[in-house]
Structure formats: C-alpha cells, structure tokens
Amino acid sequence: MTNRPDVHIEIDGRPATGLDPAVVPLLQGAYGHFTAMQVRDGRTRGLALHLERLDRATRELFGTGLDGDRVRTLVRHALDRGGRSDAGVRVYVYGAAAEGGAPTVVVTVREARTMPPRPRSMMPVPFLRPVPHVKHAGGVGQPYYGRAAALAGFDDALLTGPGGEIAEGHVANVALWNGTSLVWPEAPALRGVTMALLERLLPSVHREVLLADLGSYPAAVLMNSQGIAPVHRIGTTELAVDEELIRRLTEAYAAVPWDGI
C-alpha cells in the first residue's frame, strides 16, 4: 500500500509501502482491536488509559500482553516519519505474524481533527455492539447504522437495546444531564477514554436510560477523542442545548493534562 497523502501507515514500525490504498479498510476490519487519540505537539490526553485499553484487549483477544513502551515508541516513530506533531492517531493490534511472536501493531497517522461544536441529532437504531467493552476493528453494524442515520438526515446513530435501552453513539459515548449530574447509560457499551476522563471531573451516575425516559432529561451530550458536542434531538424528542453544561464540560476537558508520548 502506498500511503495516501492524508495518511501515513506503519506496521510494527515499518512504513506500509507498496500496497494499494484499498487494503486499508480491509486491514482495519480484520480480527483485532484499536484505540484512537488526538495528538497535539506530540502529546495526547489520557495516555495511560489508551495503553491500558490496548494491553487489556490484547490479553483478551490474543492471550498475551502489549507493552506500553513498545506502543509509545511505535507511535512516536510514525508521527516522526509521517511529518506530523499534531495528528489523529490510531493504534490497531492484530495477531502475531509468526507463531509465538508478538502481536502485530499498526499505527496510522492522519490530519488532526476536532469535533465541530454544533448541536447534533441522533437516530435511535436497534443495535448493540458485540463484545462492547472491546474497541474492536471489525463488524458491519456500526458503519451500517451510521450511514442509515446520515441518509435519514441525522448526524449520528444512537445504539439501543431491545427494550429501548440507550447504550452509545455509533462512534461516541453519550451522556444525559439530569440538572445536577451526568447520567451514563448502563446498557453494554464501550467506556471511552474521553468519557473516563470526564466522569472523574464532573458529578456522574450510571443507570439505565430508556428512550421512553428522554423527556425527563433536559440535555444530552456526545463525546469521543475529537471532543464534545451537545445533542439537540434524539429521534423525535427535542432536547435543550445547555450552554452552561457545555461550558463546564469544555473547561473540564481542557484542564486535562496532555501526556507526552
């Protein structure tokens, strides 16, 4: 794969040259897992959480750990060779290339991104991610429902269970606001790094949240590594955009230290 102008890819520290770019989505869809981070000046928020996520999932999927120092070295190398100190970085982990070897680590480096702060609309869809605690690379459900939401005129899909239990966005965590605390849905979902950072900084509770209960919540937000945005509509339910809540979340997130990779 010859690296496209907008993305630099390395496999175990070696540039992925000589392959067609069409291989990228196939590689990203294989049996494996990943973490996504935004890097600024060679630093990222919640680095320890990213490394812990990678190690834990590697042990679960492949029966071996993943050394954090190895990951940091590979990311630094890819940032340097990719010519970016500000970037969107993904670290993918797959099985060992040879019997008894270390897991294969793929690092992609592309343009840095920030979530637009505009209010979002979300379309509830009847889907929960399999093995939801792992940020896995495969599966058609998330992109399928994300596309379906876009075609229906929504910004994002909201994944829900068979009883209308709210779980997460198709590429982000969702939290409701009850006026005093962030309410994190208890349905099976990925515990995102941005979520993990914010729930330490603002009053938070975890409980079941049903689509039928949305009218009792004055506001909602979604978040991922790119940032935070208000949610103004879920299905046909309109939600207020709480500017004070967004200010508090934004200030709290901005105060999170950036860790050197």
Rank of each mutant, 00 (worst) to 15 (best):
G146K: 01
R4M: 09
F154A: 07
V221F: 03
T104S: 12
G88I: 00
T2L: 13
W177N: 03
E60Y: 05
A196G: 12
D12V: 05
V171Q: 10
R247T: 13
I246M: 14
T160M: 09
L211V: 14
D12Q: 05
A98S: 12
A48N: 09
E165V: 04
T58F: 02
S121L: 10
L239M: 13
S216E: 15
R45M: 08
E52D: 12
G88N: 07
V221R: 01
G215M: 11
G29R: 04
V105C: 03
V131G: 02
R56K: 09
F62A: 05
H232K: 14
Y217P: 07
H232T: 09
R118V: 13
S225G: 12
A36M: 04
P117S: 06
T73E: 15
A252T: 05
V171A: 14
R4T: 13
H50I: 11
G88C: 09
G100H: 07
F62L: 11
T108K: 01
A152Q: 11
E111F: 01
G227K: 00
Y145E: 01
R147N: 02
R233G: 11
V193K: 00
A112L: 15
W177I: 09
H50E: 08
P130T: 10
Y253F: 15
A252I: 08
L211D: 06
R200S: 11
P15T: 06
V7Y: 07
A48S: 13
T17Y: 00
D213S: 14
D213P: 03
E251C: 05
G100V: 12
R45V: 00
E186V: 02
G192Q: 02
D156G: 00
G227W: 00
G68E: 05
I261C: 04
A150R: 15
L222Y: 00
G141T: 03
D55A: 12
Y144H: 14
R191E: 15
I9S: 00
R14P: 01
H206C: 09
W177D: 06
E99W: 08
W177E: 08
H206G: 11
Y253L: 11
L47D: 00
G163K: 12
Q38C: 09
T2M: 07
V205I: 14
E251F: 03
A252D: 07
M223E: 03
S204P: 02
R129Q: 12
I11E: 02
R43N: 06
T160I: 08
L151K: 13
G42Q: 07
R81E: 15
N3E: 11
Q226H: 06
R70H: 14
P185F: 11
